[in-house]
């Protein structure tokens, strides 16, 4: 290969190596892959990869998606890699999501946001080998449009395939024990303030099969919130009229 590729001052010796290292320097990778010089080189060097790259460029809605998919053009057989993370299995990805809980990693969110995970599964043939998981991922991508955080944490539980929640660096498998600790004076305010916001606990309970209780809980909360909004609005209107 007589074209010199550098990514963030690191010399790349082959296209395959480029594919393997793109996840470490996504911005630089995007610049490179869209540069006329590189595209000219690629067209002459490997027309097949060039065509695939153009196709991905047209298809991808955001640059994160473009870079993610492009890396598999240059290195087709590769584990999951994105924004500095690499995972050898879907379970590893799931475990990572849960390990951060209740915090959310915005880059891990990309797997649902830009549908990177479902596209990876199709590329690697997981859509045919792990049909149920693939269907679940598609469902979660849909759910992400309505409730990002719930979909994100549910993905973690589904992929990790274990009903253990990690909260403030402590792991809980027993639901009662978890809540017993959360309602004590030291924890209750922080736990309550995060509950609706990040949906972590709700996702966990949903995964464990407490959907009916979650639905009932949600109906009470939503009803009160709507009524409060109506009350605030009416109070404002009547103050203005006075």
């Amino acid at each position: 290969m007589n074209f010199v590729i550098t990514l963030e001052k690191e010399r790349i010796d082959s296209l395959e190596e480029l594919g393997k290292k793109m996840y470490l320097h996504e911005d630089a990778s995007e610049k490179l892959l869209t540069s006329p010089k590189f595209l000219k080189f690629l067209k002459e060097y490997d027309i097949d990869k060039y065509n695939k790259l153009i196709e991905v460029n047209h298809k991808a809605r955001e640059h994160e998606e473009f870079v993610f998919l492009a890396q598999y053009i240059f290195s087709p057989v590769m584990n999951i890699r994105h924004h500095g993370y690499q995972f050898n299995s879907l379970k590893e990805l799931g475990d990572k999501i849960i390990s951060f809980g209740p915090e959310i990693d915005v880059y891990l969110k990309d797997f649902l946001k830009y549908k990177l995970l479902s596209q990876y599964m199709v590329l690697m043939g997981f859509d045919k080998r792990e049909v149920l998981t693939y269907k679940k991922v598609l469902e979660l991508e849909k759910l992400f449009q309505e409730n990002e955080n719930k979909a994100y944490f549910l993905l973690g539980f589904v992929l990790s395939n274990c009903g253990i929640i990690t909260y403030w660096n402590k792991s809980y498998s027993d639901v009662d024990l978890f809540f017993k600790e959360m309602v004590i004076d030291n924890n209750v305010v922080s736990y309550s303030s995060l509950l609706e916001k990040n949906q972590y606990v709700i996702s966990w309970l949903t995964y464990l099969g407490y959907q009916e209780k979650i639905d009932y809980y949600q109906s009470i909360i939503n009803s009160i919130q709507t009524l409060e909004e109506n009350y605030e609005r009416r109070t404002k209107v009547s103050k203005m009229e006075k």
């Binding site: 809540f179 606990v201 407490y210 209780k213």
Partner: peptide
């Protein structure tokens, strides 16, 4: 409503 009651409600529904 306060976030506190949201947390307590969920806990109470479980146990």
């Amino acid at each position: 409503m306060r976030n506190l009651e949201k947390g307590l409600l969920l806990a109470e529904l479980i146990d």
